[in-house]
Amino acid sequence: MHPAFSVIFFTTSSGAGYGLLALMGIFGAAGLLPADRWVGLAGLFMALALISTGLLSSTFHLGRPERAWRAITQWRSSWLAREGVMAVLTYIPAGLMGLGWVWFEDMQGPWAVAGIVTALLSWITVVCTAMIYRSLRPIHQWHNDWTVPSYGLLSLMSGAVLMSVLIHLFGIENDYIQGLTVVTLAAGWGLKTLYWGFNKRSRGLPTMNSALGIDAGDVSVLELPHTSDNYLMKEMGFKVARKHADKLRRIAHLLGFALPLALSLLAMFVSGYVALAAVVIAWGSCSLGILTERWLFFAEAKHTVNLYYGATSV
């Protein structure tokens, strides 16, 4: 599948934003973060800025961006519409939480409830995003049980990496948060490695024979219907990144997981500026690594339409 940069940026940026927002809600409600105006403002601003720029960027790949508002109407059947609805709804408790945290400097009682509701809605939004891909049967690399957990965990992971930057900026010592960063990085790395392994081994059911309704024989392309690449070949037949897939995967392993994991572990044992530098570099590295991971997610997805253009399996 063609990796549209606006969609790659949207899923990584909003994923990190919703991860951070959910953790703000949970840790805020649990009293593990100080109900301090500036901590609340910085954390919520980071989260909501990432979410909002991500959502905005996702409208850039639309043919008719001015009609984007229509995309929340069909929530009964469409995961894309559900995602839109949940994304809009999440702003409400997030705003309430911000009111409590930033204005009243209070994260107890109703404000804590707003925090928990924010976390739940954030997670549901991320699940809806993942379900857009999970629900597409023509793409075996997405239509499997790894897609949703992977999106969910990577969102939580990139949120935790950001949160550890936040606490180090404010000089807050919190082993729960730094520990969560380490655990989610390790778990995310493991899950994504398994997911990549699944995609390497597993193939979709359709074949060239079933695509043509011809039961027996070896089918090969004799002649294409057109002389130059059409929409289908540009959108579904993208091959550039597949050529470099192994190199890009090594980059994703290193920048997305290994380096941030080592630096986040280091930050547990050092303090001051060294720890701050470690978590900031971990965040930068992780962001680049997850962008690469997301590029591969699209570029390595093989749509069944490729069977009509000579692919022997998808």
Binding site: R64, P65, R67, R70, L136, A211, Y231, L232, M236, V305
Partner: peptide, 19 residues
């Protein structure tokens, strides 16, 4: 009503939709 998100063309296994 179409916003041109192209998701329908991804959902079609047969490549029947063109943008």
């Amino acid at each position: 009503k179409c916003i041109g998100c192209k998701l329908c063309s991804w959902a079609c296994p047969y490549g029947a939709r063109e943008f």
